[in-house]
């Protein structure tokens, strides 16, 4: 049964790591672009928002599956 917890931990950890890297790149580029072209900041924020929604789609599903493993399969 411990293997299920390890699997859930790997899913959650990988998802958090990938989201962190993705958001760090996205936020860094947003800051850089806003500094270069301040008048474009609102449009850039919109593009960032759309990309953020796509970026966390797979980790969100991963969270759901990990919770299922923890509370239903192992529970």
């Amino acid at each position: 049964m411990e293997i299920v917890y390890i699997a859930a931990a790997i899913i959650l950890g990988s998802g958090a790591l990938a989201t962190g890297i993705g958001f760090a790149l996205l936020g860094g580029k947003l800051l850089e672009s806003s500094a270069r072209q301040p008048e474009m900041a609102p449009q850039l924020q919109t593009k960032t928002f759309i990309m953020a929604g796509l970026l966390d789609a797979v980790p969100m599903i991963g969270v759901g599956i990990a919770m299922y493993l923890i509370f239903v399969v192992a529970g």
Binding site: L12, G15, A16, T19, F23, L26, G27, L30, L31, S34, A35, P38, E39, A41, P42, Q45, T48, A52, D56, P59, M60, V63, G64, A66, M67
Partner: peptide
């Protein structure tokens, strides 16, 4: 919103994402 608020914007984005994942879990 706006270029002057860009650091706040990015900080809020990180916090919002963290809270979103936590709320989902």
């Amino acid at each position: 919103q706006g270029a002057r608020q860009a650091p706040m914007m990015v900080g809020n984005m990180f916090r919002a994402e963290g809270v979103k994942l936590a709320l989902t879990a």
